[in-house]
Design a protein around this nucleic acid. Structure first.
Length: 495
RNA sequence: GCGGGUGUAGCUCAGUGGUAGAGCGUCACGUUGCCAACGUGAAUGUCGUGGGUUCAAGUCCCAUCACCCGCUCCA
């Protein structure tokens, strides 16, 4: 219990620090805020960019078998029919008046065990308007019969309208995941980049989900950023690649400074798996909120050949959709073709002379969640001479500012020398110059922003050409020749 | 959506129906010169928002927004 309180206090401290130092603000704050939405301030935007770049470097740049992509957020409505989101992302939910438990209407059974059939083509407005007889349904939580409130409709995808002319506007969805943009471009990439299976396509971008509840600061928000890789491989090699990406992705977090004891895998039980997934594991971080919960940072799934097969069905449904007046709820996906294995999204392997639908291993990471985890894990308070020192022990690659440059005092030519050094360093590293106030205060301010190194030009600089190099974590200082500062930093920072 | 809690300066928080406060931080000047130093001064408030009660509301009442905790939900 004591530990739990400490953890709760810790998240509060981090939220306060985020606000105080300009990492993360509530969205639309001066208007009273907008639920579940957050803005990244000057330091936060640098941190988040660094997280993205670290991911892109590890997943795309450092590999010969992965290429990048950046898709539009708005896509053809049938994409979401094929992916299953258009149906599964719209539910009717009711609340048991007795125990206040929420259940999906289509999951409720009466005491004979008959669940209402899950209709595949849900028009949420029609479904909400249709009377539902729940008088004999049993609450799965408390067993009460017929104690349900009126069903509430949930739209789990955001909708928007495309077209300025009211008469030919089309309802579109904001993507609930970036993955589908990759599947939809599989053929394009294959035809234009000379990639050969096994290979992956990576993308970082915003996604949107109308979560029923949001949670814990930026952990679960309705607008969020994903970093996703779809790695295409031959059936039969998928288990191997699944293990490969599990190891790669776990190591990415620990290489960037997440402590191993705060990170773990959680393998999904077979009955927990989505119907198309052969295996799925979450990379979880022990966040200091809730009960000190392990919470998902990233899911790594073996999605088999499901997605590409679904999109082959989707492609064949376009005419039906047009004929139905572009009404997504009025149609069903075309059945899978008999020769689907040689369909438009199949792959021909020249070595084995075989054609197949590739299997997909999908590491899907939450950028905002990772950013929060890096913040939480880096956060430290320590007592120095009776004072609390707040320090963010970021990995150099993630630190928003890499180096701060100070003149010890604002006279005797020190500002000029320091300024010249700053002008040189900023071309290579995110740098910060400060000549105001006591030196100790300037150091501490940088500790709180997570800046790994501070360089101070002092009286000795004029005499022997050296400056003080101060280390964030140990607070130790060494002297480095002015003209070797850049080299010295590159050894420490370019890791 | 339900239950509990919170909302006052940039941050942390005091504030008995009767003049809007403190500490920290920020800024300026001076001093000092390597770890949140000192002195002097300054700026900073839709008291979350909107109604109501009252001679008078930060304080009481109603509604609403946001955040936190617990349920619930969770491609």
């Amino acid at each position: 219990m004591v530990q739990r309180m400490a953890q709760l206090a810790k998240l509060d401290d981090i939220v306060a620090l985020c606000k105080r130092r300009g990492f993360i603000f509530q969205s639309s704050e001066i208007y009273g805020g907008l639920a579940s939405c957050y803005d990244y301030g000057p330091l936060g935007v640098e941190l988040k960019r660094n997280v993205r770049e670290a991911w892109w470097k590890a997943v795309v740049k450092m590999r010969d078998d992965v290429v990048g992509l950046d898709c539009s957020i708005l896509m053809h409505p049938l994409v979401w029919k094929a992916s299953g989101h258009a149906d599964k992302f719209a539910d009717l939910v009711t609340v048991c008046k007795k125990c206040n438990t929420r259940s999906r209407v289509d999951h409720l059974a009466d005491h004979h065990g008959h669940a209402e059939e899950h209709t595949e083509h849900v028009d949420i407005d029609k479904a909400a308007a249709t009377p539902h007889d729940l008088s004999r349904k049993v609450c799965p939580a408390c067993g009460a019969v017929g104690q349900f409130g009126a069903p509430m409709a949930f739209r789990l995808m955001f909708e928007t309208q495309m077209g300025a002319n009211v008469e030919d506007t089309m309802t579109l969805f904001l993507r609930p995941e970036t993955a589908q943009g990759i599947f939809v471009n599989f053929r394009n990439v294959l035809d234009t980049t000379r990639v050969k299976i096994p290979f992956g396509i990576a993308q970082i971008g915003k996604s949107f989900r109308n979560e029923v509840t949001t949670k814990a600061f930026i952990f679960r928000t309705r607008e969020f950023e994903q970093a996703e890789l779809e790695f295409f491989c031959a059936p039969g090699t998928d288990d191997e690649w699944y293990e490969h990406w599990k190891a790669e992705r776990f190591r990415w977090y620990t290489d960037l400074g997440i402590r191993k004891e705060n990170l773990r895998f959680r393998e999904h039980d077979p009955d927990e798996l989505a119907h198309y997934a052969k295996a799925c594991v979450d990379v979880e971080y022990r966040f200091p909120f809730g009960q000190g919960d392990w919470q998902e940072l990233e899911g790594i799934a073996n999605r088999t050949d499901y997605d590409l097969r679904q999109h082959q069905r989707g492609m064949r449904t376009v005419n039906d959709w047009m004929a139905a007046g572009r009404d997504l709820t009025a149609i069903g996906l075309k059945e899978e073709a008999e020769d689907y294995l040689s369909g438009p999204l199949s792959y021909f392997d020249e070595q084995t002379r075989q054609r197949f639908i590739p299997y997909v291993i999908e590491p899907s990471a939450g950028v905002d969640r990772s950013t929060l985890a890096f913040l939480v894990d880096a956060y430290d308070e320590e007592e120095v001479r009776g004072e609390v020192r707040n320090v963010l022990r970021f990995h150099p690659a993630l630190a928003p500012v890499k180096v701060a440059i100070f003149p010890l005092v604002k006279k005797d030519g020190m500002p000029e020398t320091a300024r010249a050094l700053y002008d040189d360093l900023k071309r290579r590293y995110a740098s910060f110059y400060d000549e105001k106030g006591a030196i100790g205060r300037r150091y501490r301010r940088q500790d709180e922003a997570g800046t790994p190194y501070c360089v101070t030009v002092d009286g000795q600089t004029k005499e022997d050409g050296t400056v003080t190099m101060r280390d964030r974590d140990s607070m130790e200082q060494i002297r480095v020749p002015l003209d070797q500062v850049r080299t010295w930093l590159s050894e420490k920072l370019d890791v």
